[in-house]
Amino acid sequence: MLFLDTLLIGLSSGAIYALMALALVLVWRSTRVVNFAQAGQAILSTYLGYEVMSVTHNYWVSIPFAILGGAAIAAFVDAVIMRSLAKRSHKGSVSEIAPVIATLGLLGLIRSLTGMIWGNAYLQYTSPLSSKGYTIGSHTIPFSPLNLVIVVGALFVMGVFAAIFKFTNLGLALRAASFQPEISRLAGIRVDRIRTVGWAFAGAAGAVAGALVTPTTYLSPNSLDLLLVSGFVAAVIGGLDSLIGAVLGGLLLGVGFAFILQYIGTSVTFSAAFIILILVLFVRPRGILGSKVGRRDA
């Protein structure tokens, strides 16, 4: 029974990691940038949801606003910052790390901005759902309606993305633009614009992650930092350029964390992400579903 309980806990946190990983993978595929600002963008959209909720007093109404906000922020970031960065710094000794630095700067910028507006206090962004586990027979399982919504919501978003990529012209353009930008441009795809759309999708995924996970904890300018790291580890486990890999990686990581928490203890959770990441990179550097060309330089 303990085993099943742990599995359930892991699945619900894993769904959140999967969303974050999805956001990172979407950006990585389209622009070869790991967007460290994703945590910041997600926190900003969650604050937006918080504001909407303080007006409407309805969690469900606030979520679409958060999602739209997240998409708009991401599109803005790509169109204004990343595009001019790509135009200017394609040469020179730091060209490879310039996007990393830029997204870090952006993370810092958003954190200070949110700190200025809302302060560093812990805010409550609550959902009307109970966080009390369901009871089956006499046993209460650690899986609440809130967890159920998290898992279903995350799966729904992933399903929508999969459908868009598979069945729509937009999805085809997105795939083409990330696979062969030059040739896509020749074939009449506006690659820059399509990339911005890719960023917007990623922003939306991150916003969903933020809006779903925050009711289980609290809201502060850096409350999603750990989620960023977990999302990155999940994305690397999945291979960093595979959407399905990101989902699998997130779920695996969530379940792995839950078991570590259950059987080893809370003391190692923070370091566990790092250790798992190092292990993955040594044992199977291209992840479970990643393409062969990967992270080695030479």
């Binding site: 990393v100 690397v236 923070f270 370091s271 080695r296």
Partner: peptide, 26 residues
């Protein structure tokens, strides 16, 4: 580990270290 990684992977790995290590003090 770093020598096997390029730009963004290295950034992410070291980021995970920065988040994880100081909390070990507890």
């Amino acid at each position: 580990a770093a020598a096997r990684l390029s730009g963004p992977y290295l950034a992410g790995t070291t980021l995970a270290l920065a988040v994880g290590l100081p909390s070990l003090a507890n």
